[in-house]
């Protein structure tokens, strides 16, 4: 099944029709998406700034992760559900949009960064001078800033 077929399938669904007919549904889902992504970005940025050694040095990295990861995952799930829902409103437009496709690739890279962090970086993050946590935090911050930017750019280019 090609992307074109998938777009056709999505645009034929009841959800797609509801989204394009309703005057308030898309905006509401988008507002929830904004709220969710601000929680995702905000919670990740706090951890990244800590990894970079720039903020919250009062807390250990595991303590900060314990405090913030539930917010990150809960909000990410909400952002994913609302994000996928928005695709139904204009599947052809999104699938042809450069910033949409690039955002998906960046999300994949951010996911890989999370896996690398938990598998390799966190177990070795024992000293304050360690370089790997700083690199991990910097990569994450740049990735998520770009993801948020590309998300906003979709709205101007679709």
């Amino acid at each position: 099944m090609s992307l074109q077929d998938l777009a056709t399938t999505l645009s034929d669904t009841r959800l797609a029709i509801e989204l394009t007919d309703s005057t308030w549904l898309f905006g509401t889902i988008e507002a929830v998406h904004v709220l969710a992504l601000t929680l995702v970005f905000g919670s990740i940025a706090v951890v990244d700034l800590r990894l970079l050694g720039l903020w919250r040095k009062d807390a250990t990295i595991p303590a900060l992760l314990h405090e913030l990861l539930p917010i990150t995952w809960g909000a990410f799930a909400l952002a994913a559900v609302t994000g996928i829902t928005m695709i139904f409103a204009n599947p052809f437009g999104y699938f042809e949009n450069f910033f949409f496709k690039a955002k998906l690739v960046l999300l994949l890279l951010a996911g890989i960064n999370v896996l690398v962090f938990h598998r390799f970086v966190l177990p070795r993050a024992t000293s304050a001078q360690a370089l790997a946590p700083r690199i991990s935090g910097g990569v994450s911050l740049v990735l998520w800033l770009t993801i948020v930017s590309f998300g906003r750019w979709i709205g101007f280019t679709i």
Partner: peptide
Amino acid sequence: RGWIVPAIQVVHIIAIAAVVISVA
């Protein structure tokens, strides 16, 4: 320039993120 308004919106959203995570 066409990119300035979306760029300001990104700054606005990042600042919203700071308020939202603080309040949360």
